[in-house]
Design a protein around this nucleic acid. Sequence first.
DNA 1: CTCTTAGTTGACCAGTCAGTAAAATAATAA
DNA 2: TTATTATTTTACTGACTGGTCAACTAAGAG
Lengths: 206, 206
Amino acid sequence: MGRTSDAKEKIIESAIELISLRSYNAVGVQELCEHSGVKKGSFYHFFPSKRDLTVIALDRMWANFKTGMLDPIYNSESTAREKFQTLLEKSHEYQSADKDYKGCVTGCSIGNLALELSTQDEVIRLKIQEIFKEWTGYFENLIIDSINEGDLPVETDPHSTAQAILAYIEGLSLLGKTYNDPSVTSRLGEGIMQLCITRKKVKKTA
Amino acid sequence: MGRTSDAKEKIIESAIELISLRSYNAVGVQELCEHSGVKKGSFYHFFPSKRDLTVIALDRMWANFKTGMLDPIYNSESTAREKFQTLLEKSHEYQSADKDYKGCVTGCSIGNLALELSTQDEVIRLKIQEIFKEWTGYFENLIIDSINEGDLPVETDPHSTAQAILAYIEGLSLLGKTYNDPSVTSRLGEGIMQLCITRKKVKKTA
DNA sequence: CTCTTAGTTGACCAGTCAGTAAAATAATAA
DNA sequence: TTATTATTTTACTGACTGGTCAACTAAGAG
């Protein structure tokens, strides 16, 4: 079976760390290799291109976000409303930690790549689109739970409400990053609940 | 007085066009020069660095957005509610035009640069922060008008509501760009009105 | 012990990056 | 007309870009 290696893993972790903090184009393959202690030849042994690495890094970021954030919250014993609140609190914690340890609010790594690369790389755009659809699915379930709990009216449209909430969260990340201020998320977070109000289903017209 | 030139202007226009469509790091000085028909030496005669050009381009983008979008809407004869609606419609038009003529939804050029460069270049971050504060100011005035029109309760906090709306609009741009779909803005736009509901002033604690 | 497979290494490529320096050229003001 | 000032042009830097290649090495399987 030949020899084993953790180089691939180290490169993925470095990519997540460096690209999240700066940007795709600001981090070169060379720096990625230095940071992970891997030679450039090994890099291209594991990844056909920087772009391919980025797609895998995106998958990993999303997986980490689900297991570290969405799943625990979704599976917790609380109302949908409380779950959204917990999400906001956790987000604020992460952003504060960023600011404390890295010196700046980095926002949402996935959203960052979305804006930087969507018009440039269709494969990456589609990957992020897929992630956003899954993410919206989580919120949809939460909203459906909320309707069942009697906390939201039955006319509420789970899908469009979920999309609106994702948009709002990404917007808060963008503002928080621009102001380099983690408190943006916590101060404006309650807006999520407002986005749930009176959003009625609209019948699709063929 | 020496000779005159429109090279500076052409470079700024090229910068806005190319960087808005792709990204800061994806567009080089060389390409900027070729696109504007200016030699590299002239580029550095007018701008000390690519970064300095970008700051000026940001100012110009914001000025264009104000004169082409915010000011006409703000000065129009209609209710604040209608003005927000017009803003959404116009945004949708711009995004549709982007998709038709350039092949993709480019989102908000200012927001794009915010996410790409905020952690990398403090001067640019502060410039965009300043723009966002001015932008929020426009929305604040609209919300105050709305309160005076009796359309929103007097307890509404204009400042935080304005910030929430800006976040939401930037979030819609991000989603629209990721889905490469201009209809995101129009479908979810009504959320702006929801963000105005029951947002109460909180007394500042020293 | 050897063959195979997987991973490592370092040298190398052409192209591009932002930015520089100096000479050449217009236009205007005196 | 001449001096001054603003703009243009060309040629150039050194560092870095993503990516390639072939030789080398270590580990497990037969």
